[in-house]
Structure formats: structure tokens, C-alpha cells
Amino acid sequence: MKFLTSRTLRATAVFCVVASLAACGLPRSGPNKKEIYSGSVLEDGDSFVVSVTDRVNAAIGVTPSLGFSSDFTNAGSIGSDTIQAGDVLSLTIWENVDDGLLAGQGANATILSEVQVDGAGFIFVPYAGRVKASGNSPEAIRRIITEKLDTQTPDPQVMVTRAAGDGATVSITGKINGQGVYAIERPTRTLTAMLARAGGVAVEPSLAQVKVIRAGKTGSVWFEDLFENARYDIALRNGDRILVEADQRSFTALGATGAQNRVAFETRTLSALEAIAQVGGLQTHTADPTGVFVLRNESEEIAEQVMGRDDLIGTQRLIYVLNLTEPNGLFLARDFLIRDGDTVYVTEAPFVQWTKTLQAITGTAGTADSLRDLSN
């Protein structure tokens, strides 16, 4: 009688566990391969599930580039002595007569020690009128004043110097060793020279981005590209704002990986294989190397190339599938480029759920035996 009772208890426990598993499922890190494929367009879902091939890698292997537009690259260097609004000038005017326009009786020189350049960039000089100073060098201003006075006094001699003010300046902030406002001087007319003047970047150079904001327009470039492409070493302009930032790109790692987290890029270009390695690789006891997925919102143009279609409209959801067990699976993963905002998800191997089921069943059966022993 006790034997039948024991068997009955075991059978009841197993039945309850199986029923519970069927109703609720076991704990896991995310969907399995079957569930991911069920969300494809072919299964009336809203995502395209694509197996990665060499052709797919060629279609998506376009990384967003940084660089300056022609508004920045076509700007010529300005002189280190260029006058700007707010500068204060000192003017000395000699006249070749005893009773000149400006000089007093018995003197032939007139000193205007503090002439400030107004907000519109002009100064006022008696008998010469308003003179455009902003954007000109002291030598150019001297010639303009001389020409205007020459018709009123014989052979005037003019000297112009900057008495106060930095002239053209730029501001540098962010990941730089010396934040501040710097004057554009003869040695620092270009971007690289000014960054060096500010002490250089304060982050890993390979991950540093330099942003320049000028007159409402913005351009960005990788710090290393400034030295590899001379075209990006742009001439600076008064009022430029320079911001140095560390690379802000990241991807999300989920599933049976060594770490489930938001992960920053460690290199300018990051492959799927490098991304997996960066989070500690696949979990040896749980990961399914045939189920490595990369989830991405792809542009219409690239999505059509990948799918071989021309009827897609707008951004598309694509799920790229990497099978690391294929003969060239590791090569495909090495050539697959991860982009900012991607999600890398690795499914659990099928046996993992089976093992969990067995553990749940045997554990529950053991609990039932314990309860039976207690009841006796």
C-alpha cells in the first residue's frame, strides 16, 4: 500500500511540474530562435530576418563618415593681426603742414589713443569718417585712412596698432587638457595647431571626435583624420566653438553572452566578432553559436539592397543571423560591422531548457519524497 502511495505521489508531482512548465515556461534570458523567426515578415511579423552572407556584408558595410563641409574646408586662413569688433585701436596721424586738419597749432601729429571698434565693425576717424576695421589688418586700416585723408591734407602719414583686445578668438571645451578661449595667432591659425596650443585631447586619440560650430553650422571629424587628411585641418574663424568628445557610440549585448549590458565602442570600426569578444564571448555552457542575432533599424536604401527589393518604404527592422558553426561563419562575423544602437542577442542552446526542465522535475520529485517522509 505504501509502495502504491509513493508511486502515486511521484506521478502526481511530475504531472504538476510538467503542467506548470507548459503553462508558465522556465526562466530564461530571452526568446529562442523559433520565437525570433516567428516575428519575421514571412510569418506575418514586422521584421526581416536575414542570414548573413558575403553579399549582405557588402551591402551593409557602410560606416557613417565624419568630415567638414565645403563651408569649412574652403575658408582661407585669416591673419593673426586681424581686427575684430570690440578691439581697441591706437591711431597716430602726421600731417605735412603746420596747421593741419587734426593737429593743433604748432604740432603736426595727432594721437587717437583709444578708438574702439563698434559692434558693426567700424571706427570713426575725424575727416575720414566711418572706416571698416573688423576683418582688416592694422596695415589695411592704415591704407584706408590714408586714402581718405589724402584729398584733404598733403601727404598724411598714418600708424595703426591694436591697443587692446585679442582680435579673432575661438573657444575650446570638452575632453581637452586646456579648456578656454584662445586668440588666433600666427602659429595657431589651423585646427590642429589650436588643439595643440590647448594641450591636446584628454581621451584616447583613436576615439576622440572634434566638433567645430561656426555661424550656426556644425562639422565633426575624427581626431586622427586631422593628421591623415590635410583637408580636414581647417582654417579657424573668429567665434569658432571647438568641442572635443569621446566616441559616444554603443551597442547592447543580451542573451547568452559574457555580459548583458550597454557597451561602448572601443574602436572606430567594430565587427560582430569583436563585439562578442568585448563582452567576454559566448557563455560556454548556455550559448547557441548558431543563434547570434543582430537587431537593427536599417535605412530604406540599404534594406532594399539587402532584401533585393525596390518596394520598401522608410526605415525597416532587420534581424541579421550569424551562424558561427558554418565553415565560414567566423569570417562572416568578422566582416559584419556593428553600428551605433545595434542589439547583439545570443540565444540559449536547446538543451539548456531541457536541462532546466529535468532539474525542475527531479527537484520537485525530491520535494514530494521529502513531504511524504515528513507525513510518515
Results as ranks from 00 to 15, higher is better:
57 N>I: 08
233 D>W: 00
54 D>R: 01
327 P>T: 15
250 S>Y: 13
179 Q>T: 10
373 D>L: 00
295 L>S: 13
298 E>R: 01
106 G>L: 14
285 H>G: 10
355 T>W: 03
356 K>L: 15
145 I>P: 00
345 Y>W: 04
299 S>T: 13
323 N>T: 03
103 A>Q: 02
295 L>G: 13
104 G>T: 15
62 V>N: 15
33 K>H: 10
252 T>G: 01
253 A>T: 04
124 F>V: 12
141 I>D: 00
81 D>E: 14
219 G>L: 06
375 S>V: 11
102 L>W: 07
183 A>F: 03
362 T>N: 06
179 Q>N: 12
122 F>T: 00
122 F>W: 08
216 G>S: 09
219 G>P: 07
196 A>G: 05
45 G>Q: 05
83 I>E: 00
130 R>D: 00
9 L>E: 14
78 I>H: 08
53 T>I: 07
371 L>Y: 04
137 S>P: 04
135 G>Y: 02
213 I>K: 01
92 T>V: 15
55 R>G: 04
207 L>M: 13
199 G>A: 10
340 D>A: 05
77 S>D: 13
338 I>G: 00
113 S>H: 11
74 N>K: 14
98 D>E: 13
258 G>D: 07
102 L>M: 13
168 A>F: 02
149 L>T: 01
286 T>N: 13
67 G>M: 11
280 G>A: 05
231 R>Y: 04
142 R>D: 00
162 R>W: 05
311 D>L: 07
302 I>H: 02
250 S>P: 07
168 A>G: 06
177 N>W: 04
325 T>N: 13
68 F>H: 06
313 I>W: 01
228 E>R: 13
176 I>S: 06
359 Q>V: 02
124 F>Q: 14
253 A>V: 06
74 N>W: 01
366 G>D: 09
209 Q>F: 05
62 V>E: 15
44 D>C: 11
320 Y>H: 10
105 Q>F: 15
184 I>Y: 05
200 G>A: 08
9 L>I: 12
330 L>Q: 15
303 A>S: 15
181 V>C: 08
193 A>K: 05
191 L>I: 03
25 G>Y: 14
34 K>H: 04
266 E>R: 11
129 G>P: 09
333 A>Y: 10
49 V>M: 05
96 N>M: 12
8 T>N: 14
35 E>C: 03
248 Q>S: 11
329 G>V: 15
106 G>M: 08
